[in-house]
């Protein structure tokens, strides 16, 4: 019988659990590094772990993922090396981008991570291009682009969705609707209060999903990626999620949202939900999960140590990589 989220096998469930825990611990550690002044702030993805995890469960290294300013979770779910990621955050020579890109620009083409991007909405057409490349080359790679509810108001989304649809490209547009763009509430900025509904105008499926449920993300991701691989064209997924922290560094979210709202979402925490599901269905024991927690902690600590001990780039790196050939 085919896997549905209700009958997911243990291996997938534990991979998703471990991935989400790694993301959370990575973000906790990177926040500590930022607080210590080793990088000047970052956009935490805590709260949103389930979105790329459920999607990435269906992805291969030769599929593409593209992200935003808030992309550590996208990168980890896509399999980017933790050591190199943390080193990149600290601007070290051993980082994914040799210290040149930093927290908003992590890229690892070998893992199909085609880059986080600090310009809101900027990556959406690039994802269409990666999908075009797969189609022209005749392989069945797919391209996933994550963007926020705020980014949904950029013109680039319109052009990219239309292009992907008329050319039936293997793109999965994943809107992480965490309800805010900086301090701007989603209900103010998005007309009609739905990103998913916009898909209709581009003749593609538009699905709203509970982004706090990794099982639901797994389910909608499965169908969207199947469609894309089969040459049936793009899908838009609107994952309803929440960022637990402020937008960036010192931002205090209680200036624009209530404690009650924060509590509401934290009570539906994605990691806790999956943990309960695994235990309730007897797929694994408390001890097994605890050992995964510990393993995640060990690898994040190792990454932080690796980053701390790595050398900074040499001064001549300032002017290398501007061109391929000069």
């Amino acid at each position: 019988m085919a896997n549905t989220s209700a009958t997911l096998d243990k291996k997938t469930l534990l991979w998703m659990y471990e991935t989400m825990v790694v993301i959370r611990k990575f973000e906790e550690s990177s926040k500590r590094e930022a607080d210590a002044g080793k990088l000047r702030g970052m956009h935490s993805s805590i709260g949103q772990e389930a979105v790329p995890t459920g999607i990435s469960a269906h992805l291969r290294d030769d599929d593409y993922a593209l992200g935003t300013h808030r992309s550590h979770h996208h990168c980890i779910a896509k399999g980017v090396d933790l050591n190199e990621m943390m080193a990149e955050l600290l601007g070290k020579a051993t980082g994914t981008n040799k210290g040149k890109g930093g927290t908003m620009h992590i890229a690892d083409i070998n893992k199909g991570m085609l880059g986080a991007n600090g310009v809101v909405g900027s990556n959406i057409p690039v994802a269409v291009g990666a999908a075009l490349s797969a189609k022209v080359k005749g392989n069945d790679s797919v391209s996933v682009v994550y963007f926020g509810d705020g980014a949904a108001n950029q013109g680039s989304l319109h052009e990219a969705m239309n292009l992907a649809s008329i050319w039936k490209l293997p793109v999965i547009f994943v809107c992480e609707n965490n309800r805010y763009a900086e301090s701007t509430p989603f209900e103010y900025s998005v007309a009609g209060e739905s990103v998913a509904k916009r898909a209709e105008g581009y003749a593609m499926p538009g699905v709203e999903a509970d982004g706090q449920s990794v099982l639901e993300m797994w389910e909608v991701g499965k169908e969207a990626i199947r469609r894309a691989r089969a040459g049936e064209g793009p899908t838009l997924i609107e994952a309803m999620t929440y960022r637990y922290h402020g937008h960036f560094g010192a931002d205090d979210p209680l200036n624009y949202r209530t404690q009650e709202e924060e509590d509401y979402y934290e009570a539906r925490d994605c990691v806790e939900q999956l943990k309960n599901h695994i235990l309730d269905t007897g797929k694994a024991t408390e001890e097994e999960l605890a050992s995964l927690d510990e393993k995640a902690g060990v690898s994040v600590s190792a990454a932080t140590k690796f980053a701390d001990e790595s050398p900074f780039p040499l001064p001549e790196e300032l002017t290398t990589d501007v061109y391929v050939n000069v």
Partner: peptide
């Protein structure tokens, strides 16, 4: 600055 882009690393940015 030299004809280059702004680097992230705190070790390189002051050189820009």
């Amino acid at each position: 600055p030299p004809h280059t882009l702004v680097p992230y690393s705190l070790a390189l940015e002051p050189l820009f």
